[in-house]
Amino acid sequence: MGNPRFWLSLLALTAAGELLAAPPATGNRLSFVSCPIVRDTRSVPCWLSEYEGNTYYLTIQSDVSAEVQPPMLGHKVLVEGVVSAAPAVCGGIVLEKVRLSVMPEQDASCNTMLPADEHYTIDFNPRPPGPSGGRLAFDPSPASATAPAPAPPKGPQTFQLYFDFDKSVSFRHPAPLVSILEMAEKLHATRMTVTGVRGAHKLSNGNLLQESAGVGQRRAEEVAGLLLGAGLKIPATTTWIDGTPDADGVDDWQSRRVTVELLP
């Protein structure tokens, strides 16, 4: 059995995930479902998640306009990203091209909140409450405010709307839906096709994670109904792809989508 103290130490380190976890190779794509973890900091909290003994940095709390929005305690999160060589943030390995999707079912085990720790700081100054020199979350950026008007659209115009896992229309969609309405007016669209897709993910552990059957239809019908309900008065064809989906582990989040095509 060897030295029992060695084995006890090994057991303790293993439990802490500090020995057996091989550091991930830079550039590796990861796709996993795990509990999110909140770590408080002096400014805003940061969000982490653990997978196969490693801790990954996901994002920080910022604003509704953030490109990557934090997940939710009480739910697992589907994480996709590419391992980065960047210095760790908040104690987590940084993932590039990170995509997060809150899993819809509740999971009470996802309840870890870590206190602020002086070892972990983040290079972010949150917008303070009240008047300041910061940028309003909903304001157009200076670049977009001065950008030249786009050329008048010609030919069919296609839009992709992406969804959280097993979810339909949410807070993510008012802006793209408004864009579709505006384009339909500019294009003098005469027809619209709306195609909903049931997505899937090839996880890093080799498992295939599929969305629920019927979600493609639900998404397509909801999106079409919303556009028509908002005043789009053109014939709409609604289709869906709700079969057994496959996935290759590369940007699988794009499989959870609705495609809207406007035809002049």
């Binding site: 909140v38 408080d40 805003v44 909290p45 969000w47 709390q61 604003d63 509704v64 953030a66 929005q69 934090p70 997940p71 939710m72 305690l73 009480g74 739910h75 909140m113 409450p129 009240g130 949410s170 807070f171 993510r172």
Partner: peptide, 23 residues
């Protein structure tokens, strides 16, 4: 205006991209 606390499990605030909880 300034006293932070953890806002958690509040529908239509913790579900609009800010995360759950938010400080």
């Amino acid at each position: 205006f300034y006293r932070t606390f953890w806002i958690s499990d509040a529908m239509h605030i913790n579900t609009v991209g800010l995360g759950n909880p938010i400080k």
